[in-house]
C-alpha cells in the first residue's frame, strides 16, 4: 500500500511537471472546448426572447447550467485514446510494457495531474462567467460542492476508461481514433452539453438513461447547481460506480486480449 501510494505520488509529481511544460497549449485546448459557453449565449438569448424563461429555465439558470457543464467538461476531458492509438501503432508502448506497472496508471496520472495545471484558468473563466451574467449562482452548499467533487471525479474516471478502451482497439484496427471522434459527436448531444436533457423528447431522455453519457455531464451539473437533492445524488453516485465497474472490466478484457496482438513495431 505504501509502495502504491509512493508510485502514485511520484507519477503525479513528474507528470505535473511534464504537463506544466505544455501550459500554453492547455489554455488553447481549454478554449477549444468552449461549446457549452456558446450554447449558454444561445439559450440565454432564447430565454430573453421568450419573455424571461424557456422550459422553466431563466437566463441565470441557463448561465449556471452551462457554466457548470463547461467546468465538468473541462474536468472530464480525455485524449488517452489518441495517445494509446499512437503508442500501439508506433510501438511506443514497448518501453512502458517492460516496466512492472500497468501503463494505464501512467496515462491516468498524466491526465489527473493535467487537471491541476488547468485549474487556475478554469477558476478564472468560471468566476468571469458568474460575474458577467447577473444573478447567476452555483450551489452555495458545501455538501453539494463535495458531492460534485465526487461526481466529477467519477465522471472523469469513467470518461477516461471509455477513451482508454477506444484507444485499445488500435490492437485490432488501423485507426481507433475514428471511434473516439464518433464518441465526441454522441457525447455532445447525449451528455447535456448542447442543452439540458429536459429539452429532449421523453423517449430520448429514457434511452439516454441507460448509457453513461448523462452521468458524465448532466447529473454532475445538477449537483453543482443545487438542483439534485440527496437521494438523487446518492443514485447518481451509485450509477456512476456501476459504470466505473463495467468500464474497468471492459478495459481489462480489451487489454488482456489486445496484448496478444501487440506487434511492438519499430526497432
Amino acid at each position: 500500500m505504501r509502495s502504491a501510494l509512493n508510485k502514485g505520488r511520484v507519477l503525479f509529481t513528474v507528470w505535473f511537471a511534464h504537463m506544466s511544460a505544455y501550459r500554453a497549449e492547455i489554455i488553447i485546448w481549454m478554449l477549444a472546448g468552449s461549446v457549452p459557453l456558446i450554447m449558454m449565449a444561445v439559450w440565454i438569448a432564447k430565454a430573453q426572447a421568450s419573455g424571461g424563461a424557456t422550459g422553466g429555465f431563466t437566463p441565470s439558470d441557463f448561465a449556471a447550467y452551462f457554466l457548470a457543464a463547461w467546468l465538468t467538461q473541462q474536468i472530464i476531458v480525455a485524449w488517452v485514446a489518441w495517445e494509446l492509438d499512437h503508442h500501439i501503432r508506433q510501438g511506443h508502448l514497448s518501453p512502458k510494457l517492460l516496466r512492472p506497472l500497468d501503463p494505464f496508471w501512467e496515462f491516468f496520472m498524466g491526465h489527473a495531474s493535467e487537471r491541476f495545471v488547468r485549474l487556475p484558468f478554469m477558476l478564472v473563466i468560471l468566476f468571469a462567467g458568474l460575474i458577467l451574467v447577473p444573478g447567476t449562482r452555483l450551489t452555495p452548499d458545501a455538501g453539494h460542492v463535495l458531492a460534485y467533487a465526487a461526481c466529477a471525479s467519477l465522471a472523469f474516471t469513467i470518461r477516461f476508461l471509455i477513451a482508454y478502451s477506444i484507444g485499445l482497439l488500435a490492437f485490432w484496427f488501423d485507426q481507433a481514433t475514428a471511434l473516439d471522434e464518433f464518441y465526441y459527436v454522441a457525447a455532445a448531444f447525449l451528455t447535456g452539453t448542447f442543452a439540458p436533457l429536459e429539452f429532449y423528447p421523453p423517449f430520448i431522455q429514457a434511452a439516454v438513461e441507460w448509457t453513461p453519457f448523462p452521468y458524465l455531464v448532466y447529473y454532475p451539473v445538477r449537483v453543482l447547481t443545487g438542483a439534485a437533492d440527496t437521494p438523487e445524488i446518492l443514485r447518481v453516485l451509485g450509477v456512476q460506480l456501476a459504470w466505473l465497474l463495467v468500464m474497468t472490466l471492459v478495459r481489462a478484457l480489451l487489454w488482456k486480449q489486445g496484448l496478444k496482438r501487440y506487434g511492438a513495431v519499430g526497432a
Partner: peptide
C-alpha cells in the same frame, strides 16, 4: 529481473 534497451526507442520523458 530483465531489461530491454532499444537503441531506436526511448523511455525517457522528452520534456523533462
Amino acid at each position: 529481473h530483465i531489461t530491454l534497451v532499444m537503441g531506436q526507442k526511448q523511455q525517457l520523458l522528452w520534456d523533462l
